[in-house]
Design a protein around this nucleic acid. Sequence first.
DNA 1: TAAACGTATTGATGAACATCTATATGATTA
DNA 2: TAATCATATAGATGTTCATCAATACGTTTA
Lengths: 102, 102
Amino acid sequence: MKLATEEFDRISKALADPQRREILQKLVARRMNCSDVHAMFNVSQPTVSHHLKELAIAGILDKEKQGQFCFYQVKAEVLSAYVAELQKRLGVGAIAVAPRMK
Amino acid sequence: MKLATEEFDRISKALADPQRREILQKLVARRMNCSDVHAMFNVSQPTVSHHLKELAIAGILDKEKQGQFCFYQVKAEVLSAYVAELQKRLGVGAIAVAPRMK
DNA sequence: TAAACGTATTGATGAACATCTATATGATTA
DNA sequence: TAATCATATAGATGTTCATCAATACGTTTA
């Protein structure tokens, strides 16, 4: 998977805010809805919603609506592609490895 | 090398601005002074100076003064450590490889 | 030593953005 | 159907920050 520069920059920005990064890390561990995430941090529900939206727009999260709930989950391929692209741009060598099975 | 969360976030922010990221990429290719960088982009000299300072503060660049010139060069170990930490936090598996010799 | 050069700092400006409260919208439940 | 719950949106606010012009500071050169 190949990321365009605009997508790459969008992701970089999405990762730049500590609060948003922490939210993302929680979602790496497991798929969650907005309330679940909200319960984990000291920010308002709209702020959480906003961050999730930003992460989704950046292409990092998948959004799946189930009734009144809305589940967000990490798009591992995109994250891998981002890290790969970053390594390339920073001249940091590495061999990518497939993520572990679910 | 291990990065504290504050250092990690600082680097993330440093990478989040496209202009600064591009400057960094040029420096990955070769060590340069402020004027050299300035000649490559359509931003003012103070802006370049500012970005170089931010990258240095983030620990990504080394600053070396030689007479009236000021050379900046990438700290490869820090970039590697950043990518490694990012992979860890994002759950993206990879095997790091030593950077090529100069 | 005066002019030119390389770089950093200062101060200002406008834009981006993280956050909040209030509210709207849609789904579930009593 | 009314109340409750989950989420999103709207609008406001304060802060961060990318950028610039002007200038200061140190170094080199004529």
